Computed example of a mutant assay.
Amino acid sequence: MSDDSPHSSNGSSSKGWLDKISQIFNDEPQTKEDVVDVLAIAAQNDLIDQNTKNMIDGVLEIADLRIRDIMIPRSQMITLDLSDGPEKFIPAMIESGHSRFPIVAEDKDHVEGILLAKDLLKLLIDRDKEIIIKDLLRPIVVVPESKRVDSLLKEFRQNRYHMAVVVDEYGGVSGLVTIEDILELIVGEIEDEFDLEENQTDNIRKVSKHVFMVQALTELDEFNAFFNSEYNKEEADTIGGIVLHQFGHMPEKGEEVEVGGLIFKIHTADTRRIQQITVTVPKFDEEGSES
């Protein structure tokens, strides 16, 4: 007599995802997409928690990113002018809460070095000693926009530096990148007492300065509030529904579409539904126009 008990269906289900994992590793496809599939199955079956999956996803994602994708743009760089004295440096340091500052001469294209707040503070104790800022500067590390993020992280660790100046193909300074920017791609936002609270939710996770990972089932009200967007609830209740409506078909992983100024890329999906989407917010230059 065959076993038609309720437990048999659960056993088949369990065997199904185990077979899929086994098949992937037995075939040794060596593709990132297969690894992502395994992680999704493992999370769905509580073999790993969501935080662990997010961190592994972050490690996989940085392999596809370039420094230009995560850098602090030139317009948002906090710099100090070499011609100013400590009396001007200190208020700026306190206001920003940062510990490292590019020191510039003339403009941001002329970075003379990096000043560590702790180096300056040590000398402030001795008020009789003249402080020569140029003598306190650490060497700058310059990297191209096109450099891979994972490669820079390796250099950060090997050479024990924490900040690099980013230049474009013409040699002009286009931004700044820190080791914290890279680590946040893996572990999520690293907040300290100086960080402003961000409206980050479990459904929306920041991947880089302009890229966010969003659950497709995120309610439209929550999505609109986070991105200051105005997608119409008459079309769908979730952001996944809006994206699906725009495609007009069930999209596959990697397909992109622009809706209302935001770029949506399918991160994970099956034959029936979209699961995760990456949302890219356009960058803006110093004049406020889209770059």
Rank of each mutant, 00 (worst) to 15 (best):
V214G: 02
E189W: 03
L220R: 10
N203T: 14
E222M: 09
G188A: 02
E198T: 11
E198P: 08
L217Y: 02
L196Q: 15
S208K: 00
A216C: 12
D192L: 14
T201A: 07
Q215Y: 06
D221M: 04
L220N: 03
S208W: 05
E197I: 15
F194P: 04
L217K: 01
F212D: 03
N199P: 04
E191V: 11
N228T: 07
E219P: 08
R205E: 07
S208G: 01
G188M: 12
M213I: 13
H210M: 05
S208H: 03
E198R: 13
F227Q: 11
N228R: 11
E222A: 11
F212G: 00
E197Q: 15
M213W: 04
D192T: 08
L220V: 05
V207Q: 10
N228V: 01
N228C: 00
F223E: 01
R205C: 04
N224H: 02
M213Q: 05
H210F: 12
I190Q: 01
V187D: 05
T201F: 03
I204D: 03
T218E: 02
F227T: 06
Q215F: 08
E219S: 07
F227A: 07
F227V: 02
L196T: 15
H210A: 03
H210P: 00
N199W: 04
E191S: 14
N199I: 06
E198M: 04
K209F: 03
M213N: 08
L217E: 02
N228S: 12
E189I: 07
R205A: 10
Q215V: 11
I204A: 02
E222D: 15
K206N: 03
F223I: 12
T201H: 10
F227M: 11
L220I: 14
I190D: 07
V187S: 05
Q200F: 14
N228M: 03
L185F: 05
D192C: 11
M213H: 10
I190A: 01
I190V: 14
G188T: 08
F226A: 04
V207Y: 00
I190P: 12
A225D: 15
Q215I: 04
N203P: 01
V187F: 14
E222L: 11
V187A: 04
K206E: 08
F227R: 12
E198C: 01
F223K: 06
F226N: 09
N199Q: 09
E222H: 06
I186A: 03
F223P: 00
A225G: 01
K206Y: 03
F212Y: 15
F227C: 07
F223C: 06
H210Q: 06
D192G: 12
V207N: 00
N199G: 00
D195N: 12
L196R: 13
N203Y: 14
D195G: 11
F212C: 01
V211I: 15
F212N: 00
E191M: 09
V214W: 07
M213S: 12
E219T: 03
D221A: 07
F194N: 13
